[in-house]
């Protein structure tokens, strides 16, 4: 995976985790053709092994967020014995609370930003929902700046496959292979724009954390 893309996505999840004082945060990108969400960046719990994992995009809270394009907060999940059992098994971590917001670009869902176990004061209020949605909007904007709408696929994690280009209207499945993906993304990525995107996130973090 292109280093700049990876850095950008990692910055998104690191900042999200920091803002909400959360145990973990993830970005999933949507592979529309396969009907799956793919862990693309993880901060915190599961960071070492989750990137690249896939699960059906029609299921679970992240799935609902991807399909509906709406943010959502749920709390008290550990009381639910059936909560996302498959996902919980694969992540070895079942959160008690979860916030998720769509990454939207022009009405199109690129993926989902998820925050697991935010600090208790950052839960279950309309204000937090708004904050999450605002941050997700900034993150999507940063992604849009960093990755131009060139029809190139998102490079897969570790160069071992790919997710169709979420910014492209002509996504055709995981076609961006180890060679094409990183090459296309890297050639299209201008270092100045990358810097802009990262600066955007850094500024946002400062504002939101009141520093």
């Amino acid at each position: 995976m292109d280093a700049a893309c990876r850095e950008l996505l990692q910055a998104v999840v690191d900042v999200a985790r920091a803002i909400f004082g959360a145990a973990a945060s993830s970005v999933f990108l949507l592979d529309e053709e396969a009907g799956e969400l793919v862990f693309q960046a993880v901060s915190g719990e599961g960071e070492e092994f989750l990137v690249g994992r896939r699960f059906p995009a029609g299921r679970g809270i992240a799935g609902w967020v991807a399909v509906s394009g709406e943010p959502m907060i749920v709390d008290d999940l550990t009381t639910s014995t059936a909560f996302d059992r498959a996902l919980a098994e694969s992540t070895a971590y079942v959160p008690d609370a979860l916030m998720a917001a769509p990454l939207l670009s022009g009405g199109r869902v690129l993926g989902v930003l998820e925050v697991l176990d935010p600090s208790p004061q950052a839960r279950s209020s309309v204000r937090e929902l708004d904050l999450l949605a605002m941050f997700a909007r900034q993150a999507a904007a940063a992604l849009r700046v960093a990755v131009p709408d060139a029809g190139a696929g998102w490079p897969g994690p570790d160069g071992t496959g790919g997710v169709p280009g979420p910014l492209s209207g002509t996504a055709k499945g995981p076609v961006a292979g180890p060679a094409a993906g990183p090459a296309a993304a890297a050639s299209a990525l201008d270092s100045g724009r990358r810097a802009d995107a990262l600066r955007l996130l850094a500024t946002l973090e400062e504002v939101l954390r009141g520093e």
């Binding site: 709406e70 943010p71 959502m72 907060i73 749920v74 709390d75 008290d76 999940l77 009381t79 639910s80 014995t81 059936a82 909560f83 279950s124 209020s125 309309v126 937090e128 929902l129």
Partner: peptide, 18 residues
């Protein structure tokens, strides 16, 4: 629509917002 107790999967009840 804030912190609303609701039924959820598996016969559970959770709280949610929106």
């Amino acid at each position: 629509g804030q912190n609303v107790p609701v039924p959820w999967l598996g016969g559970a009840t959770i709280r949610t917002t929106g």
